[in-house]
Design a protein around this nucleic acid. Structure first.
Lengths: 134, 134
DNA sequence: GAATTATATTCGCCTAAGCAAATATATAAG
DNA sequence: CTTATATATTTGCTTAGGCGAATATAATTC
């Protein structure tokens, strides 16, 4: 009968998940739409296991959800179960755009997803739905 | 020439400071006004060194400021130097009121500060300015 | 200045969590 | 079934930071 969600999701859990620069950068890149892991790796220029580890952390914290599509995994932001956490998380992921490095990351991601000739192996993962250029 | 604050205050620094339940409870108690450490200790029923350690952490993160008044130290919330951090921190400290334990903490603090007969040694620290009852 | 009070810091220990390197798993392609 | 690709997990190591207990510092009082 409480107005809040029933789960005892603690706020400090959310903040622990946000307390890492790499995870914030990942959240930033997923702000618009779901993104394939391979693009996350390239956009952030970090090793694949490192990206995967942080995605796992975010998954455990309930901040992202994953969808498999063939060989590829697409991650997207998820709304945390707790009302307050959800409000904060939404505000944070929206506010990341103000950061300089975050904007650069986004630019690099768009370049990877949407450039006519993607770098390296030409056969890439399917593009996310709505990040396509105008 | 940037609209943001000049300092390279990183967001993950803020979140690390918020990633601890005890620190969140302290922030909650300082939401209204500056509070004497002795009341923080009693309201949270935690050991004095533990409170002091977490206050030091918050101080280093630029989230609280301290003022000495004789033997007593009064802590209050401070606005972090970074624009985004400030916005998030303000939202968080305001939103803590929705938490059950946080409300209990506040109630206990008011009881300590404003009861006609304070518990234990009767000579207590001076009361904060505006937490007095109506 | 000696004792008391309020607060801060140090110490030793322990867990969470970061990293790189290596390895495992899942799917697709041949 | 074998290989290649995409992603995930494990391993071994290192650091940040939590805790309680003990101790140090600062201001007040006697």
């Amino acid at each position: 009968m409480k107005s809040n969600s029933a789960k005892p999701y603690e706020l400090d859990l959310l903040f622990r998940a946000l307390a890492d620069r790499t995870r914030l950068r990942l959240i930033n890149l997923m702000g618009a739409d779901e993104v394939c892991v391979c693009f996350l790796v390239e956009a952030l220029k970090l090793t694949q296991p490192k990206i995967s580890r942080h995605l796992a952390y975010l998954r455990r914290a309930g901040l992202v959800a994953a969808r498999r599509e063939g060989k590829w995994m697409h991650y997207r932001l998820a709304v945390p179960p707790d009302t307050r956490a959800a409000a904060i998380f939404t505000a944070v992921s929206a506010g990341l755009a103000e950061d300089k490095e975050m904007r650069l990351d986004r630019g690099r991601l768009v370049g990877l997803c949407c450039s006519p000739r993607a770098p390296a192996p030409l056969k890439r993962a399917p593009k996310p739905a709505s990040v396509t250029p105008g």
